[in-house]
Simulated scan of single mutants.
Amino acid sequence: MSKTKNPQEKKRLSYQHDRRNTYGENQKSSRKNIPRSKQLSHQDERRSVRQSLIAARGNVVDEIADEAHSDALHKGRMKKLKAFRKSPDSPLGEVVKRRLGKRTKGK
């Protein structure tokens, strides 16, 4: 059973907790775009690591192998830091406040 009893409290909690997509794209497209973006960033990370390890192919000197390994770790870490991250949707209260502000400016 709900702890909040009156409608005003329910409305206030709804404005705090409910979220709305304000990214600017079609809301349904996120279903496909988020996995695609994650996939592309992971592919980019793997590709950069693979390209830095190409120098250490076959029989190579230990120094070159160590340098290629550290370069691969560094590039992989940098790509992971700049990788795709999801951003949360805006709280409903902020969205409603922004819409009401636009409505009053228009008049």
Rank of each mutant, 00 (worst) to 15 (best):
S30Y: 07
S48F: 02
M1A: 14
A72R: 10
N59W: 11
E45Y: 02
R46P: 00
V95P: 04
R46C: 03
E67H: 08
K5M: 09
T22Q: 13
K105G: 04
G24S: 03
P91Q: 09
D71G: 03
K3Y: 11
I34Y: 06
G106Q: 14
Q27Y: 01
N33F: 03
D66F: 09
A56C: 11
S70A: 11
K10I: 13
K105M: 08
T104I: 14
G58V: 08
M78A: 12
N6G: 05
V61T: 06
G24Q: 02
V60G: 03
R12D: 14
V96D: 03
V61Y: 01
V49R: 14
G106F: 06
V61A: 05
M78G: 00
A83M: 02
S90H: 10
Q43K: 12
T104D: 12
R85S: 08
D18F: 14
S41C: 05
K107Y: 10
D18I: 06
M1L: 12
S41L: 01
S37A: 13
Q27S: 09
Q39D: 06
K3P: 04
D18Q: 12
K107T: 07
P88F: 02
K107Q: 13
V95Q: 07
N26F: 03
K97D: 15
K79T: 05
T4E: 12
E25S: 05
E63H: 02
L92N: 07
F84C: 01
T4F: 07
V49P: 01
K102C: 03
K38H: 08
R85F: 02
H69F: 15
K105S: 13
P91R: 14
V96G: 00
D89E: 08
K38P: 00
Y23K: 01
I34S: 06
L40Q: 10
I54P: 00
R103T: 11
Q27K: 07
E67C: 05
S30Q: 12
N33Q: 09
M78E: 14
Q39A: 08
L73E: 08
R50L: 11
A65R: 09
S29T: 09
F84Q: 02
I64E: 13
A56W: 04
K32V: 07
V60N: 09
K10M: 11
T104G: 01
P91H: 13
E9I: 05
K107D: 07
I54D: 10
G101A: 15
S70Y: 10
S14I: 05
K11P: 00
